[in-house]
Design a protein around this nucleic acid. Sequence first.
DNA 1: CCTACCGATCGGTAGG
DNA 2: CCTACCGATCGGTAGG
Lengths: 191, 191
Amino acid sequence: MTTTQTKKQQIYEAAARLFRDKGYSATSMRHLAEAVALKASSLYNHIGSKEELLRDICFENAHKYLSGLQAIAMTRDSNLDKIKSLIDLHLDMATEDITSVTAFNDEWRHLSEPWLSDFIQLRKDYEKGFLEILEAGMNAGEIHRADAHTLLYTILSSIRWLYDWRKPEKPMDTERIKQQISNFLVRGLVN
Amino acid sequence: MTTTQTKKQQIYEAAARLFRDKGYSATSMRHLAEAVALKASSLYNHIGSKEELLRDICFENAHKYLSGLQAIAMTRDSNLDKIKSLIDLHLDMATEDITSVTAFNDEWRHLSEPWLSDFIQLRKDYEKGFLEILEAGMNAGEIHRADAHTLLYTILSSIRWLYDWRKPEKPMDTERIKQQISNFLVRGLVN
DNA sequence: CCTACCGATCGGTAGG
DNA sequence: CCTACCGATCGGTAGG
């Protein structure tokens, strides 16, 4: 039982890494099996299908981002502080969860219906919440007035390189780099 | 003769679009053939292989970025103005060339050796030139002091969303959005 | 530019 | 968890 659990987790982690490094389509079940010291057919004792792996990874990350957003939105912080918290959320996700950036930004495209539509809806919900905070910040004069969509996508994209840069052997630098990215973006936003 | 030229161009443009939308691995030669109203085998009268398509697209873009960088580096502009020009280069490439962003950032991973190493070298050359300008700008007090690699990757990534956002039916907005992205990034950089 | 076809590999199943 | 195997699809070639 614990062995099964562990093996399933191993498969998910190996899949996450392969999807990130090679992309979903270029990752084969035989390659994934090799990564966890199994034959391809044995994977199906632990998982349902290749797409189920992608699906679980995409929706887990989507819900993490959404619950993070909701927690930030309901605080009594200033809009600028909320935006700082959202930037930190993305920086933390990018450095802590190996899959969050590519799953949320790219690989979800390979989902099939009806999950594709479900995921796009979750992503739109997330963007809507983020946009509302950006617009409230502009109306309050806390941040520079600009097209909120442009700011949103620029912020989200700007963090996308972190996932494949991060050197595991230099964990000490991670906090400094996150701080510098945050400073850069916040300086660009404030009025 | 002109027909052959045109068909080859059609194939490259369709391939570029498919690689961008679905990724290199998920794009099949049969699907590409369908996009240009041909059978898969007929593609090979115009092109050498699937990887040749990717290779040409990747290296053409790499050389465009490098020659753009070299032209900017040899001007007598301030370092900040050079950085602004580099940002404009990326914004122009993202909105004018359908493939530049994904090829330069993602799909090159699917190249095989020796071209993979060649491409990585070109990319490193580009990064080196960009980094030198960023560091000169810091030393001259023109831009805020920070880790130059962090600034570089954040700038490059921040433009990555433009390629799949751009609505062809709203070309008028493109210039305004490019301007706003540039302003956002420059405000984050200046001292 | 097509039909016909190649060997390789794909995701996944049967059966033990 | 494995061996053996399935039909489908892959990139690409032969031959006309």
